[in-house]
Design a protein around this nucleic acid. Structure first.
Lengths: 340, 340
DNA sequence: CTGTTAGCGCTTTCAG
DNA sequence: CTGAAAGCGCTAACAG
């Protein structure tokens, strides 16, 4: 009938069952040292009152919230969405909740959000933190249990990351094999560690391939950044463009189509990540697949270990898989044969 | 130098500043009734110790957590991601945090997650709940401050929703104008309220257009569901298909291309939502645009009002905008002219 | 204006 | 096996 406006507390249950608070607490926590008869009496009272322990009160006394915080640079980015999803599902299996915070690519907010969300949770997962190395290390030292996703440059916390260097190398090789000798690289945030990893890989590629030129073009991390880069790519007279990620690649692709630049006829374009829709673009996008949901799940495994006081698994470096689709082809002026 | 392992408490600050707990509390909460000199002494001590009030303890005593919970049926769905993003950004502007839970389209989990996350937060936002009407009403009554997104069938909480009926009507009109007289509708979850809204709209459309046949095909809510429906669509001899959402439409489109069915030559396909990548498919997808991030922000406005004890704004019914792209065209056998 | 005293709702020694 | 009491860290009357 009329449900009471306020929830039952442990005191209500204790009174209803005619026992002390401690007994109720023991029963609710399945402490075996309670007489069976008493226990079932308490359980009946609890059920009757619809009682469940207040998680806030438990958090305060137990010092744990059963919740972890996840900070991402941009919730609109499919890769972060996927990481979040993988993490959230994995954590929920273990009865943990997830607090999300979107730093919106704002450096200052990132640190603040991390600290603030961490205080209401048991641990912190930082996705692709944009913070400088030193600041990141400071932050990690301050916040306690933390795991870092897609950022290699720290030893202060477990790391799970895609191997951006290896992925980019595969992409370059793919283009070189198709005759490209002048390739544009649309760089992402300077702050992004994965961008540096890619830069290093490009340097190695230049050394490995005689006569290969790779010109770096500052772009950004989103669709608009890619679209805005078409002019620079054309000016660079590159026959192919490697984008920081699929979003940037899609922007470039879109601008190319709009300006009548044939893809891959005049310009080959490749992205990075293999976001869900990369296969539906026109032409479908060549990219390097990052198993983002798996990264999220792996991040949770490590977090769980940390929370349990166990040794987390070794850092994970997942090698992206080259996904060759139709947005890349032979360099202009070449026949369609590829040399290994 | 050596940062202490455990955080400073209000007691530490009080001792350091040589005042009582209450004074520290007052200062930290900007209570003006504190002597200026004392206040700055306290502030200095707090700064020195790096003190910030423990949010858990505050939550317990204040009865509010400064956090809201959001339950979505599927974090992989771009529309829910977008709603989450809009909500999260809006809430963070007001200093609120967001706890996400993905029910994974599981009915039982939905209810459980809602109740459980609600207890650690101040309010609950339910996205497109799959629960039956009665169960939903029960749930809403139980959990207190709540707002519902994309589900019209309740008066127990503020609602913000896209007008699926209007959007679908626009889509049908669009197809009818292009000569289609036999249209397949790929239905979503029966549990989805927006599906019923669409069914009603279709019934009205049938009545409005003489000789128009709309055949309903049970499909689902994701890409695979759409891909699996191609056979049924062909069997129905429909010249056009209206999908429950863009994901389903993309699945169908993909299967069509794969099986050599010309789109829109032999089959016109339209989706719903206008997810970010709908414009990049090949051909680009005709759809009805739902301003999902705006829905999320609007949901937060209402939640904020509820939390402040104010009257929330009236329910929002946002009319989707018809986005005509190349995946729809004249019915086979017709010239490319359209009649208004 | 400031300090003392009760709790918020729960868990956990510590006695019995 | 069970209850009384202390306390997690903080805020809010209530006195002074």
């Amino acid at each position: 009938m009329g449900a009471s406006r306020t929830r039952a507390t442990i005191t209500d249950v204790a009174r209803a069952a005619g026992v002390s608070l401690s007994t109720v607490s023991r029963v609710m926590n399945d402490n075996p040292s309670v007489d069976a008869a008493l226990a079932s009496r308490v359980r009946a009272a609890a059920a009757e009152l619809g009682y469940t322990a207040n998680p806030l009160a438990r958090s305060l006394v137990l010092g744990r919230t059963q919740t972890i915080a996840v900070v991402v640079p941009d919730l609109a980015n499919p890769t972060f969405q996927e990481i979040l999803r993988g993490l959230s599902r994995a954590a929920s299996v273990d009865g943990y909740h997830v607090l999300v915070a979107d730093s919106n690519e704002q450096l200052d907010d990132e640190r603040l959000l991390a600290v603030e969300t961490r205080r209401r949770t048991d641990g912190l997962v930082l996705c692709a933190p944009r913070l400088a190395d030193d600041d990141l290390d400071d932050l990690l030292a301050e916040v306690g249990p933390a795991v870092v996703v897609n950022r290699a440059a720290t030893t202060a916390a477990p790391v799970v990351a895609a191997d951006y260097g290896a992925g980019l190398t595969a992409l370059v090789d793919h283009l070189v094999a198709r005759g490209h000798r002048r390739i544009a690289y649309l760089a992402g945030t300077r702050r992004s560690a994965s961008n540096s990893a890619r830069l290093d890989a490009l340097a190695r590629s230049r050394a490995a391939h005689d006569g290969l030129e790779i010109v770096e073009i500052p772009a950004g991390v989103d669709f608009d950044a890619g679209a805005a880069s078409l002019g620079a790519v054309r000016d660079a007279r590159a026959t192919a463009a490697l984008a920081f990620n699929d979003l940037v690649a899609l922007g470039l692709l879109s601008a190319a189509v709009e300006h009548g630049v044939a893809v891959p006829g005049e310009l080959s374009i490749a992205g990075f990540d293999d976001i869900p829709f990369a296969r539906f673009t026109s032409p479908p996008l060549t990219t390097a697949r990052v198993a983002a949901a798996d990264l999220g799940a792996a991040a949770w495994q490590r977090m769980r270990a940390l929370l349990a006081g166990e040794q987390p698994a070794a850092d994970l470096v997942s090698t992206p898989e080259l996904i060759a689709r139709a947005s890349t082809g032979p360099a202009p002026g070449l026949t369609a044969t590829a040399s290994a």
